[in-house]
Nucleic acid binder design. Structure first.
Lengths: 200, 200
DNA sequence: TTGAAAGTTCTCCAAAAGTTCTCTATATTG
DNA sequence: CAATATAGAGAACTTTTGGAGAACTTTCAA
């Protein structure tokens, strides 16, 4: 179990690696999470390594690597036939013939919510859809997140960080307006990683 | 048997864990149930642990864990937390706490296609989405189907039977026009039963 | 080769959280 | 009425977490 700061530091490292393609320095982590002391940061990073959340590749600077956990499963597969486009025959996707439903959505720290309302229809998320959320305290600008406003209202919106430090929550619906909040009023509870819908 | 306050405290802990992904502090529990004294709260939490309703994971703060009632049936399940609507807290769905991804889409005679193109965006089916299709030769008017035109072109469209016996294939995209075909030119290959999208 | 940047190892500190007490009050029950 | 269970406040304490920074070593590029 990670403490809040450990989680935020891990999120910041993941964010940096996927954005920049290399691991951040201690000072860069510190800027992301608001900690000034290299020593403190080193203590936390070492703690994450000890807990198995990170590994060090001994390559000098920026030597942090994520541990990727793979999910192995064979149940829950359907044949993946190929691609379908308007006006063309179904085209096979080379190298893929089985599609594992579980792998598509399963992962650590995930949960499912049922969407109520039309605020994200322009992003293809309709009333009644199921969304898969990964627990997270941090998110990129532009991601769709579950955000808690003033500790009371939870909402699914696209997140944008503004230059003045505030946070914009954008409904993907042309009839609705974005809202802008002071950063401390918005707490991110999770990031959208998947969506599904049944037509039965 | 739990007293009223014990039950309320247990409920508050469960709610907090499922919403925030980690156990609450004593003070947070206190705010939720309206008790100011840490000591009192500790007494009750300890009582719940003694009664086997909770376990402590000895991880320092926020170290409370729920007791797993049943062993997880199948892989491919994620917790179904509840509903999310704009401007409201996450609302629990009574009686549902596990969501089986496989069950949601699995069924006989089904296969998966990857969608290419924007012809169904208004129905919430975007370029790159995966759709689950059930093999079928017939479909109801109004269903979304994979249709083969003249034995050559496959396409995903909404199906309408017209009064004159012809068939209308409607793209759910306001910039595109429906096409009408003689019934014998259109062969239905399958009916849309599900759709999913990954944001990773 | 050399110096700035990055990482490591410490010590110290403060706030937050948990723990252990005692004290009080209000029902309920034998 | 006395005994008991429940509900609550809060003081005093310990532990955990979060944070700063000095002093040091290592890495890497100019």
């Amino acid at each position: 179990m990670l403490t809040e700061l450990e989680q935020r530091i891990l999120d910041a490292i993941k964010l940096h690696i996927s954005q920049q393609g290399r691991s951040p320095t201690l000072v860069e982590i510190g800027r992301a999470v608001g900690v000034a002391s290299k020593g403190t940061l080193h203590r936390y990073v070492q703690g994450l390594i000890d807990k198995g959340q990170l590994v060090r590749n001994h390559a000098g600077w920026r030597g942090l690597q994520l541990v990727e956990e793979e999910i192995d499963d064979e149940s829950g597969s359907l044949p993946l036939l190929g691609q379908i486009a308007a006006g063309l025959p179904i085209e096979a996707i080379p190298g893929h013939d089985k599609f594992n439903l579980a792998n598509f959505f399963m992962g650590p720290d995930r949960f499912i919510l049922k969407v109520v309302g039309d605020s994200m229809v322009d992003a293809g998320i309709l009333d009644g859809d199921m969304v898969v959320i990964r627990h997270a305290q941090q998110a990129y600008s532009g991601e769709i997140v579950v955000a808690l406003i003033d500790g009371e209202e939870a909402t699914l919106k696209r997140l944008k960080y503004m230059n003045d430090g505030r946070v914009k929550l954008i409904p993907e619906n042309s009839t609705m307006q974005p809202f802008v909040y002071a950063a401390q009023r918005v707490r991110i509870q999770g990031v959208l990683v998947g969506q599904m819908r049944s037509y039965l």
